[in-house]
Amino acid sequence: MGNLLRSMSRIPPAYFVFAALLATLWITKPQLMNMNVLGIFIRQVAPLGILVLGQMLVMRVRSIDLSGAGVLLLVNYLIASGLLRDVPLPLVLLLSLGIGCLVGLFNGYLVARRRVSAVIATLAVTVIITGFVQFLASGKPPGNMPDVMNDIYKMKWGPVPLPVVLWVALTGLMAVFLSRFVYGRFVMAVGENPTASHFSGVPVERTVLIAHVLAGFFAGVAAIVQSASVAVGSLRLGLEMPIDAVAATILGGVVFGRGDGGVWGPFFGVMCFAFLFVVMTSFGVPEPGKQITRGAIILLAAVFYGLSTRNS
């Protein structure tokens, strides 16, 4: 019995929550259960899902990245504002990815080399970027997104929306990268015990630094997909996305230093978010209710892991 409980506690909560949400939706709104509608729901969370890939990585090395909000806003603004009107679109997108990587590198330097608290560092980076972008835009919403991006966003591969294909593909790549490459083993070791990793010859600082660069890169990709999903640029992108990413990651069984949920646990954590807000809307829960849910998910999942690590 104790063994059963223990092995139950190693299964990420995301799977149970996902099943429960799907069942709820099935019973209360059976008309939504078709490929097209579900595809749209899932497509909506593709940017979150891509952001989670980076969040998961930094959380496995005992760090956290809340700077995704800043990257999202900056990329969104760059594409929509027409500031780079004369630059070809592919180059703009490449620039966006570069911005993500640079922000990640900066975070990584602060966290790994300067040992700054990761929450403070990445929150401050978001504050700085947000202030800067809003200053550039003088607080006015930027212009329209290029139509071609939205067209690509709406394309499908068979019945599956293209952004979802990208998300699943990146997740698959990440799974292979972490399980087959040396770096993945470094990530596991640093999460397990940074001191022992150091004495084993694992480059601890570099591992954390690279995790942050990759997280910045994924934030760049997520920002592009997010920008493609909207017709008009926005300055009202808040901290919700990175916080949801933290919540989905914890829900998926990855929490500071522990990677029990692997790559697919957080994937289903994001799927939960795809349906969570649908279910909540269908029950008439207002926007602030979602805010509360967000916090409650993180707190409950963290308590779940806090208790299971204390007992072992």
Binding site: S63, L110, R114, A118, V125, Q134
Partner: peptide, 25 residues
């Protein structure tokens, strides 16, 4: 808006100057 960004820079500078042994959160 710029004031917000400047406050962020100040926070980063101050925390980066404080030394800490632990890495992470």
């Amino acid at each position: 808006f710029l004031q917000g960004a400047i406050k962020g820079v100040i926070l980063l500078l101050v925390v980066a100057l404080q030394s800490r042994k632990k890495m992470g959160l």
